[in-house]
């Protein structure tokens, strides 16, 4: 591992130093997320959401999660935008003023409280890339998988080994969920065949 991510000690203050690329990517992601939420036109929201996925993929890549970034790239750029556009094409367009509802203040208060609660817990979250973070330093979990994957499974990609072998039953459940989603779409749209 290179030292591009600024590492902080376990006892360092919570505000870790942040590199320029991280700061700009965070700004991009937050801006696209806000623009998606506040877009008055649904089509504009779909388009800006595509831009959001671009930023998220770059962020995942920078944090060295290329599998997640690849999933984000394939699913978001290839699939989500297309399916959302098809749904828009098959539904009627609501007038802009009618579609924009006023703010529900109790709901906004509840969301604000939830956000405040989550923000309080952020103090105890270890810094990104910290070598003392439990998920990294635990010798029984992460380090064990990283060390033992190749010897036990014969593949180099630890993520795939965990998905297909160590947690294979969960992956089977996921695959069945995807399969069930296809059936559910058929049932909701009252069709007997896909094509």
């Amino acid at each position: 591992m290179t030292g591009a991510i600024p590492l902080v000690d376990g006892t360092a203050p919570v505000v870790a130093e942040i590199s320029a690329i991280e700061a700009t990517l965070f700004a991009f992601v937050v801006l696209t997320a806000l623009a998606t939420a506040f877009a008055r036109d649904v089509l504009a929201a779909v388009i800006v959401f595509g831009a959001y996925s671009l930023g998220m993929a770059a962020l995942y890549t920078f944090y060295r999660a290329p599998d997640v970034a690849l999933t984000e790239a394939a699913v978001s750029a290839g699939v989500t935008t297309v399916l959302l556009l098809l749904t828009l094409a098959k539904t009627t367009r609501i007038d802009h003023e009618a579609a924009f509802e006023s703010v529900n203040y109790p709901a906004a208060g509840a969301v604000g409280l939830l956000f405040a609660g989550l923000a309080v817990t952020m103090v105890d979250v270890p810094a990104v890339g910290s070598p003392d973070a439990p998920v990294w330093s635990n010798p029984d979990v992460s380090q064990w998988y990283l060390a033992e994957t190749y010897a036990r499974t014969g593949v180099e990609n630890t993520v795939m080994a965990v998905l297909a072998a160590f947690r294979g039953f969960d992956t089977f459940g996921e695959a069945v969920v995807v399969f069930a989603a296809g059936i559910a779409a058929l049932i909701v749209l009252r069709r007997e065949v896909f094509a």
Binding site: K90, A181, A185, L189, F194
Partner: peptide, 8 residues
Amino acid sequence: GLFFVLAR
């Protein structure tokens, strides 16, 4: 399949 059924 989702694509086709949504397009329909």
